[in-house]
Design a protein around this nucleic acid. Structure first.
Length: 119
DNA sequence: GAGGTGACTGCGA
DNA sequence: CTCGCAGCCACCT
């Protein structure tokens, strides 16, 4: 099923909320990337905005599993935005996603692309 | 209404 | 291989 796509803030949902909706669809134990989310929302070049949305994802209800969102190399680029610099890794490892040197093991295998999975 | 910002990405040097 | 640069676009001030 597709996430509720609304492009502008004149609609009910903002771009941020769409990002959060997609992130919540990421299955436990899987990860995705900023670029994949941006493409899925129809704004392929807006990967930075996805990260920007994550910045605003704190304190959202329901919670946004932002730790499942990595950059295209599977690196935990946003970990410093969590409470502590290792909070993100701890969350991932609690889902059996193991991290080494800020990179997710078997990233390619665990990668969950909404463009493919939500077709 | 204009300008600044960014948890990114791809390409060229 | 590593490093830098420019494009990207919704949000906020």
């Amino acid at each position: 099923m597709k996430a509720p796509i609304k492009r502008t803030k004149t609609d009910q949902y903002t771009f941020f909320e769409n990002v959060w909706a997609v992130v919540r669809l990421v299955p436990k134990g899987r990860v995705t990337t900023y670029g994949a989310i941006a493409r899925y929302l129809g704004t392929a070049g807006a990967a930075r905005m996805v990260g920007y949305a994550m910045n605003a994802a704190h304190g959202q209800n329901p919670p946004v599993p932002a730790h499942r969102v990595l950059n295209r190399n599977g690196l935990l680029t946003g970990k410093h935005h969590f409470g502590s610099s290792d909070a993100m890794q701890v969350l991932l490892e609690s889902e059996e996603i193991f991290v080494k040197n800020d990179a997710v093991n078997q990233f390619v295998t665990l990668f969950w692309d909404p463009n493919i999975e939500l077709q």
